[in-house]
């Protein structure tokens, strides 16, 4: 007996491989399934070849953005028609956070990022500080210079991923930020006092960063919550990451109006 659509789906999910599951939820072929993988592999059918082709293309886009949504088509995949409704469910790997600097704030940030579902890497060039024993919550601890690390993995980072530079030492910060702005990462934050920040901006300009590059750096890092302890600072950083993604200006809900939950806008 050949593998069912569900078996194919779960085999990929258990390996943490990205895959999109398309289901006809209204119209002809109700319940029909199509699986789409990033290399273009397609399993199953919605019952009409043209529809399969158009939906597979759209599903790849949704998968790349890590987004799930209902979409509507004509019987042969025509746009702006509503004969067939499908639900595209994206199973994308978890977003990644890379924390540069094995400092006293790192463990709390790594733990908070894990809570939010990130795959967390702690990277520090100093092997004495960056050990798996000090950061058991991290998925990976790398003893590497930040620029070398990003040379290796930076190409895989996208809008859902985050880089937090906690070293606040120009020797590490400058190469880390200079490499980070060359990635597609959605959040880039750098720790430091306002004075540290000003000096760092000068060094980054000297290193050739444009004003657009500098505008991407959230520095000093985090929302103004009055946070002091490493745990509080971790919350301030993660809250800033969420607010940047949702485009909200953080204020108490008591003082705002309108819907509390808005549809996810990603990608």
């Amino acid at each position: 007996m050949s593998e069912s659509v569900y078996e194919h789906l779960t085999s990929r999910l258990r390996l943490n491989r990205p895959i999109a599951l398309v289901t006809v939820i209204e119209g002809p072929g109700l319940g029909a399934k199509l699986l789409v993988e990033p290399d273009g592999t397609v399993v199953g059918s919605l019952g009409q070849a043209d529809l399969d082709r158009v939906v597979a293309r759209d599903a790849l886009g949704e998968l790349a953005a890590g987004r799930s949504s209902a979409r509507h088509y004509g019987e042969r995949g025509e746009a702006r028609e509503r004969v067939v409704s499908v639900f595209v469910e994206s199973f994308a790997p978890p977003p990644r956070m890379i924390i540069f600097g094995a400092v006293d704030f790192t463990a709390a940030l790594a733990a908070t990022a894990k809570l939010l579902g990130y795959t967390v890497t702690v990277c520090d060039a100093r092997p004495v500080f960056a050990t798996a024993r000090r950061f058991p919550m991290a998925d990976e601890v790398a003893n590497e210079w930040p620029d070398k690390h990003l040379d290796r993995v930076g190409g895989d980072l996208g809008p859902r991923d985050a880089i937090c530079v906690l070293t606040h030492d120009a020797k590490f910060d400058v190469p880390a930020i200079t490499s980070a702005v060359r990635t597609e990462v959605g959040y880039l934050g750098a720790m430091g006092s306002r004075r540290t920040h000003e000096r760092r901006v000068e060094r980054l300009r000297e290193a050739g960063l444009s004003e657009d590059d500098l505008a991407r750096v959230m520095s000093p890092i985090g929302l103004d919550l009055g946070a002091r302890t490493p745990e509080e600072v971790a919350i301030a950083i993660c809250a800033e990451i969420i607010a940047l993604r949702t485009g909200r200006v953080p204020r108490p809900l008591r003082d705002t109006e309108g819907p509390i939950h808005v549809p996810l806008q990603e990608g």
């Binding site: 639900f87 469910e89 819907p259 939950h261």
Partner: peptide, 15 residues
């Protein structure tokens, strides 16, 4: 049962 769409204020997202 899967959430396929939400409107207005809703705590869980599609999926």
């Amino acid at each position: 049962a899967r959430v396929v769409a939400t409107e207005g204020s809703s705590p869980r997202e599609a999926g």
